[in-house]
Amino acid sequence: MKIGTDGLVLGALAPCEGALQVLEVGTGTGVVSLMLAQRFPGIEITTLEIDEAAASEATQNVQGSPFSDRIEVTNTSFQSFLSDHQFDHIVSNPPFFQESLRSPRYQRSLARQDHGLSIFYLMDGGKRLLKPGGKMTIIWPYDRKEEFFDTAHDVALHPEQMTHLYTKPDREAKRIIVTLGHKETEMETNQLTVEDAFGEYSDDYKELLKDFLLIF
């Protein structure tokens, strides 16, 4: 799987300040966990990946980084994951192309579609793994935001922060990045646009990722 905008934005925005133990669900190449380790020197990250080849690639990427002593890649599904402790923060770029045609390649299909891990199971299972003051940050399609917030309500998780992600200024939002917690509070909202009107990366996007991408 290639590194995409969704993972980069999640890794750059997830508010893990003060967290010590972080869980990433569905790591792919490991980029989100690597970004979080770079942003927050004090955290330790457990990262899950169901696909064996992707988990192997993530392991190689972690071992080749300065953060290998703080990131543990586990080749398992979220459903099968057992932990002897709870986490301060959970992050996930989950499979969410529910209605799309399944890819002929199993790994890509598994990563891109939610027939393996529903948003309900992610939120409900994630809540059980969170410490009492813990938070969960998920990136999700804008056109399925009603489903997202209905599910959060059903499992008694409350939105604290939301970023609308736009590809271009004149288009509808493509994604939402939402941080959920146990306590009901007023949600903070903001937005990020990837490209400007001329098709170049926006100043806000470059500023967000300048510490991670050499092109910026």
Rank of each mutant, 00 (worst) to 15 (best):
V32W: 10
V22N: 02
Y142C: 08
N61H: 15
K127T: 02
S100A: 14
V73K: 00
H85Y: 12
L48D: 08
F216R: 09
V178T: 15
A14S: 15
L209I: 08
A111I: 01
S80P: 00
K210A: 11
E188C: 06
F148K: 01
L213T: 05
V62R: 00
A156N: 10
Q63G: 05
F97I: 04
E17M: 06
D150Q: 14
L117Q: 03
L36N: 05
G7I: 04
N61D: 02
Y166E: 11
L122P: 03
L34H: 00
D114W: 11
D203W: 03
L180P: 00
Q113N: 15
T5Q: 10
W140V: 00
L165W: 01
P15D: 15
H158T: 03
G42Y: 04
Y166S: 11
Y106I: 12
D203E: 14
D84S: 13
P41N: 04
I215C: 10
Q113W: 02
K174D: 08
Q113L: 05
D84Q: 10
R175V: 00
D88M: 03
A54G: 03
C16N: 05
P104H: 11
L36W: 01
E160C: 05
E200G: 03
F212S: 05
T47Y: 05
P94S: 11
Y121Q: 15
S56Y: 06
A173N: 06
V91Y: 00
E72S: 14
P132W: 05
E44T: 12
K183I: 06
R102V: 08
R171Y: 12
Q86Y: 03
S109V: 03
F81T: 04
I138S: 02
